[in-house]
Computed example of a mutant assay.
Amino acid sequence: MEQRTVLIVLFDGVQSLDVTGPAEVFTGASHHHPDAPPYRVRTASLDGAPVRTSSGLTLVPDSSLAEYAGRSGAPVPHTVLVPGGAGTREEDAALVDWLRAHAPHAERLISVCTGAALLARAGLLDGRRATTHWAYCATLARDHPEIDVDPGPIYVRDGHVSTSAGVTAGIDLALALVEEDLGRDTALIIARYLVVFLRRPGNQAQFSAQLSAQTARREPLREVQQWITEHPEGDLSVESLAERARLSPRHFARAFQAETGMTPGKYVDRVRVEHARRLLEDTSDGVEEVSRACGYGTPEAMRRAFVKALGTAPAEYRRRFHTPLTVAV
Rank of each mutant, 00 (worst) to 15 (best):
residue 138 A to W: 03
residue 115 G to C: 03
residue 133 H to P: 00
residue 116 A to P: 02
residue 110 I to N: 00
residue 116 A to K: 02
residue 122 A to E: 13
residue 126 D to C: 11
residue 107 E to S: 07
residue 116 A to Y: 01
residue 136 Y to E: 15
residue 130 A to W: 12
residue 123 G to W: 01
residue 117 A to K: 03
residue 109 L to M: 10
residue 106 A to S: 15
residue 128 R to T: 13
residue 130 A to T: 10
residue 123 G to F: 12
residue 116 A to S: 13
residue 117 A to C: 08
residue 126 D to I: 00
residue 120 A to D: 07
residue 109 L to C: 12
residue 125 L to R: 03
residue 111 S to H: 01
residue 118 L to K: 03
residue 113 C to A: 04
residue 126 D to F: 08
residue 136 Y to Q: 12
residue 132 T to V: 02
residue 129 R to N: 11
residue 131 T to D: 02
residue 112 V to H: 05
residue 134 W to I: 15
residue 110 I to G: 01
residue 127 G to W: 04
residue 118 L to H: 12
residue 113 C to W: 07
residue 132 T to P: 11
residue 121 R to W: 09
residue 130 A to F: 09
residue 117 A to V: 11
residue 139 T to C: 01
residue 130 A to I: 05
residue 129 R to P: 11
residue 123 G to Q: 08
residue 128 R to I: 06
residue 109 L to P: 02
residue 106 A to Q: 09
residue 116 A to Q: 00
residue 132 T to D: 11
residue 110 I to P: 00
residue 128 R to M: 11
residue 135 A to K: 06
residue 127 G to N: 05
residue 112 V to Q: 08
residue 127 G to V: 07
residue 114 T to H: 12
residue 109 L to S: 08
residue 132 T to K: 08
residue 106 A to E: 05
residue 135 A to H: 03
residue 130 A to H: 09
residue 126 D to G: 11
